[in-house]
Amino acid sequence: MTAHGRRRSRPRTLSALAVVVGAGLALQTVRHLAGSDVAGTVLFAVAAVLLVAALLPRLGAAGAATLGAGIALAVEFAQLTPLPGLVVDRVPMTRLVLGSSFDVADTLALLAGGIVAWLLVRTLDGRSRRASAAPST
């Protein structure tokens, strides 16, 4: 149950997360195209929110969106320190999660991703509620 008495489907949330991560990885193949960086940043925030929603199903959509977007923003602001660079130097694949440099525009894209994810989690919650309310035969 979520904070509003709705039942969230963890498999549905994890499926949505898998689609978002797949889309983000697919974006890596066209990262030279205009807008791909912003799209990837939005998807990163959506993935963070969906992960929170799956791990903490009692949180409502707003709680999951707030915490997930907050985590994504914390990762972005961490780029103002040398720590992400040190980690990326040792494990290059972590660049996909930790990024490479701080960009104010990324903070706006992360906030937009949090809003998109909030709407998505609300939709997932609504479908779960309708599915559990349907009479079984």
Score class of each variant (00 low, 15 high):
64 A>N: 07
67 L>G: 11
28 Q>K: 15
54 A>F: 01
17 L>G: 02
63 G>T: 01
71 I>W: 12
59 L>N: 00
16 A>L: 07
71 I>N: 11
116 V>I: 12
95 R>Y: 08
30 V>P: 07
16 A>P: 01
72 A>P: 05
85 G>S: 03
52 V>T: 02
119 L>F: 09
47 A>E: 03
112 A>H: 03
87 V>K: 12
96 L>A: 15
94 T>E: 05
136 S>P: 08
15 S>Q: 05
68 G>H: 06
34 A>V: 15
14 L>D: 04
15 S>H: 03
111 L>Y: 03
98 L>V: 01
70 G>M: 09
73 L>H: 11
62 A>P: 04
39 A>W: 02
66 T>P: 05
133 A>E: 13
123 T>K: 07
38 V>F: 09
136 S>I: 15
122 R>V: 12
65 A>E: 03
132 S>V: 15
21 V>R: 09
113 G>Y: 02
17 L>C: 05
87 V>L: 15
46 V>M: 12
17 L>I: 07
63 G>I: 04
69 A>T: 15
122 R>M: 11
39 A>D: 02
94 T>S: 11
118 W>K: 04
129 R>D: 10
136 S>T: 14
79 Q>S: 08
112 A>C: 08
5 G>C: 02
101 S>A: 13
52 V>C: 04
47 A>N: 03
88 V>T: 14
128 S>M: 06
98 L>S: 01
99 G>R: 02
133 A>C: 10
45 A>Q: 04
51 L>P: 04
42 V>P: 00
118 W>P: 04
67 L>T: 13
93 M>N: 08
133 A>G: 11
52 V>E: 02
109 A>M: 06
93 M>H: 11
38 V>K: 14
18 A>I: 05
61 A>I: 06
115 I>R: 13
17 L>Y: 01
88 V>Q: 11
20 V>I: 12
29 T>Q: 12
13 T>Y: 02
137 T>Q: 05
131 A>N: 03
57 P>K: 13
84 P>C: 06
14 L>Q: 05
127 R>T: 11
89 D>F: 04
53 A>H: 00
73 L>P: 10
90 R>I: 14
123 T>F: 11
112 A>F: 07
58 R>W: 10
88 V>E: 11
5 G>T: 00
90 R>Y: 06
38 V>S: 12
52 V>R: 02
108 L>C: 07
132 S>D: 13
89 D>Q: 13
88 V>Y: 06
22 G>T: 00
7 R>C: 04
130 R>F: 06
16 A>H: 02
107 T>N: 10
114 G>F: 01
17 L>A: 08
15 S>E: 05
131 A>Y: 02
90 R>K: 12
121 V>P: 00
32 H>Q: 13
19 V>M: 04
20 V>G: 07
96 L>Y: 10
121 V>T: 00
75 V>M: 08
118 W>F: 08
101 S>Q: 10
32 H>L: 09
133 A>F: 06
73 L>I: 15
41 T>R: 12
136 S>E: 12
96 L>W: 11
79 Q>R: 15
129 R>Y: 04
95 R>M: 10
